[in-house]
Amino acid sequence: MSSASASCRRASAACRAEWRPSRWFQRALALLAVLAATSILASEAPRPLAWPAALAALAHGARLCLRERARPAHSFVIRGAEVLVDGAPVAGFELRWRGPLAFAAWRDGEGRRRRAAWWPDTLPPALRRELRLAAPPPPAARGRASMAP
């Protein structure tokens, strides 16, 4: 029993996670751009309008892919309630999970809202488990009753 209580009192080690743009997400954006252009061409839209719209959909998809690829990598350090992003403390850090995807949101030093999403190709299972264990607890539910009286 003494070893269990000692381990509970001991502060947990910091979780270090690197974020980088996901290649899977970039491929999904490219595929959606191709499918959008194909669906425009397959519709009954007049051809003089369909071709420019399809080219615009392809160009917009290519712009989104390039913008995602150009996003800078981030370094996360989580020590209990303290979270550092690229070495700077952040406020309002939230980590949400949707299956194997992890979504982080925080406010930087200037008060701007920032977001990052880890896809399975950027977050191996061992680091996923470590991040899940080290993340600060989610905010508490509102004070109102959730059921009718």
Score class of each variant (00 low, 15 high):
Met1Gln: 03
Ser2Tyr: 02
Ser3Tyr: 03
Ser3Thr: 07
Ala4Pro: 00
Ala4Asn: 02
Ser5His: 06
Ser7His: 02
Cys8Asp: 10
Arg9Tyr: 00
Arg10Ile: 00
Arg10Cys: 01
Ala11Ser: 07
Ala11Trp: 04
Ala11Glu: 10
Ser12Ile: 05
Ser12Asp: 11
Ala14Asp: 11
Ala14Phe: 01
Cys15Asn: 03
Arg16Ile: 11
Arg16Lys: 14
Ala17Lys: 11
Arg20Ala: 15
Arg20Val: 15
Arg23Ala: 12
Trp24Thr: 10
Phe25Glu: 12
Gln26Met: 14
Arg27Ile: 07
Ala28Val: 12
Leu29Asn: 00
Leu29Lys: 04
Leu31Phe: 09
Leu31Ala: 14
Leu31Trp: 09
Leu32Tyr: 01
Leu32Pro: 00
Leu32Met: 05
Leu32Val: 09
Ala33Ser: 13
Val34Ala: 13
Leu35Ala: 14
Ala37His: 06
Ala37Ser: 07
Thr38Ala: 13
Ile40Lys: 04
Leu41Lys: 09
Ala42Phe: 13
Ser43Tyr: 05
Ser43Trp: 03
Glu44Met: 03
Glu44Val: 08
Ala45Arg: 10
Arg47Cys: 02
Leu49Ser: 14
Leu49Gln: 13
Trp51Thr: 02
Trp51Met: 12
Pro52Asn: 08
Pro52Glu: 13
Ala53Cys: 04
Leu55Lys: 10
Leu55Gln: 11
Leu58Trp: 05
Ala59Asp: 02
Ala59Phe: 05
His60Thr: 13
His60Ile: 09
Ala62Leu: 09
Arg63His: 13
Arg63Asp: 06
Leu64Thr: 05
Leu66Val: 06
Arg67Tyr: 00
Arg67Trp: 14
Arg69Tyr: 08
Arg69His: 14
Ala70Gly: 07
Ala70His: 10
Arg71Ser: 01
Pro72Ile: 03
Pro72Asp: 08
Ala73Val: 08
His74Phe: 07
Ser75Glu: 15
Ile78Val: 14
Gly80Tyr: 02
Gly80Ile: 04
Gly80Lys: 06
Gly80Glu: 12
Ala81Val: 05
Ala81Met: 02
Val83Ile: 12
Val83Ala: 05
Leu84Thr: 04
Asp86Phe: 08
Asp86Met: 09
Gly87Ala: 13
Gly87Lys: 02
Pro89Gly: 03
Pro89Ala: 02
Val90Pro: 00
Gly92Gln: 05
Glu94Val: 08
Arg96Ser: 15
Arg96Glu: 13
Trp97Leu: 15
Trp97Asn: 11
Trp97Gln: 15
Gly99Arg: 08
Pro100Trp: 09
Ala102Arg: 12
Phe103Pro: 03
Ala105Asp: 09
Trp106Pro: 01
Trp106Phe: 02
Trp106Met: 02
Gly109Leu: 01
Gly109Ile: 00
Gly111Arg: 00
Gly111Phe: 00
Arg112Gly: 01
Arg113Ile: 02
Trp119Phe: 15
Pro120Cys: 06
Pro120Ile: 09
Asp121Trp: 11
Asp121Gln: 13
Thr122Pro: 07
Leu123Asn: 05
Leu123Glu: 06
Leu123Val: 08
Pro124Glu: 10
Pro124Ala: 13
Pro125Ser: 04
Pro125Asp: 05
Pro125Leu: 05
Ala126Asn: 07
Leu127Ala: 15
Leu127Val: 11
Arg128Asn: 08
Glu130Asn: 12
Leu131Ala: 10
Arg132Leu: 12
Ala135Met: 07
Ala135Trp: 04
Pro137Gly: 01
Pro138Asn: 09
Ala140Glu: 11
Arg142Met: 01
Arg142Thr: 02
Arg144Pro: 00
Ser146Asp: 13
Ser146Glu: 05
Met147Val: 04
Met147Glu: 11
Ala148Gln: 03
Ala148Met: 07
Ala148Cys: 00
